[in-house]
Amino acid sequence: MFDTQQVLMFMLAGVLLNLTPGPDVLYIVNQSLRGGVQRGLVAAWGITAGCFVHVAAAAWGLGAVLATSADAFNLVKWIGATYLLWMGGRLLWRTSQAGADGDQAQVPALIGHSDLHGRGPASKEVTGLWAVFFGAFATNALNPKVALFFLAFVPQFIPAHAPDPAWSFVLLGCLFNLNSWLVCMGWAVAASWLARRGQWLQRGMRHLDRLTGLLFLGFGLKLALTDAPTR
């Protein structure tokens, strides 16, 4: 059903797109730097799970609704923008509190509490990992621009003679998400490797969190100012 060369081009384009830094990559890198590779990998799983929401929504026609209905797009847009702004503001507030207390070592991660190596009671660690997962999931699933991306990008690679375009979309979407998951895992491992070998990075973690908070505020504002697509 699919041409081999076309599929390879789709995979290459997907990898290059996933290498581009954005809110998803920022979330994974922050978690991996702050809590170790385990949290970064859990964040990667959460981001990938959010991508599957967009694939399923597009296959069921919900993505098309976002592309044609300004009200539906704006609803999801404001939910996603509010979430990103909340995360950015929350991180900035906590880093300022930690700075006021003079306790840099206790600066919390983006979602949940942990020290640099993710130590703590097993039950709290599991709860923290779930918080990381759902935070990553929400970062992706609540972004309507991701849904529009799938609608604009994937159909270009569906053959005109495909017997079932919806299932072709699902297959390509799953392939794209597999690539995305591998790239996200790579970001998590690379960030953790850098944290273990960069003492300067560990000492400047509070400043990194402050920068992360500002970037999330920027992403939230950018999303809030995004206009609904015209028909």
Rank of each mutant, 00 (worst) to 15 (best):
P165H: 04
A162H: 02
A160Y: 05
S180A: 15
L194D: 04
L208N: 07
M185S: 13
L214R: 10
L182Y: 03
W200R: 15
R206N: 14
P165M: 00
L178T: 15
G173E: 04
M185I: 06
R203F: 02
I158H: 05
A191V: 09
N177L: 03
T212F: 11
M205P: 04
L182H: 00
W187E: 00
A188F: 06
Q202C: 05
G204A: 12
S192I: 01
C184E: 05
G204R: 14
Q199K: 12
L201E: 01
W187H: 03
L211K: 07
H207F: 13
L215Y: 11
P165W: 07
W181V: 05
P163K: 10
L172G: 11
L201K: 00
M185L: 11
C184V: 09
T212M: 15
H207Y: 13
L214F: 14
F169H: 02
L217Q: 09
A195N: 01
P165C: 01
T212R: 13
M205S: 11
L172N: 11
G204N: 13
A162Q: 03
Q199S: 14
R197C: 08
R203S: 11
L172M: 10
I158N: 02
G213F: 11
A191M: 09
A188V: 08
L182K: 06
F176V: 09
L201T: 07
V183D: 00
L172P: 08
H207C: 11
W200E: 11
Q199C: 03
G198M: 07
Q202F: 02
F216C: 13
C184G: 03
A191S: 12
L214N: 12
Q202Y: 07
W193M: 10
N179F: 09
R197V: 10
G204W: 08
L194I: 05
L171A: 15
L214G: 15
S168T: 08
A195F: 04
L214S: 14
W193Y: 10
R203P: 00
F169W: 07
A162Y: 02
C174H: 08
L171Y: 08
T212N: 15
L194Y: 05
A162P: 00
L201N: 07
N179R: 01
A188T: 00
G213H: 11
P163R: 06
A188Y: 04
L182A: 02
C184F: 08
A190C: 03
W187P: 00
L214W: 14
A190W: 07
I158A: 01
L172D: 04
N177T: 08
W181N: 09
W200F: 08
A160T: 09
A162W: 01
L178V: 15
H207R: 14
R210Y: 14
L208P: 03
P163T: 09
C174K: 02
G213A: 08
G213D: 10
L182F: 04
P163W: 09
R210M: 15
A190F: 00
G173V: 01
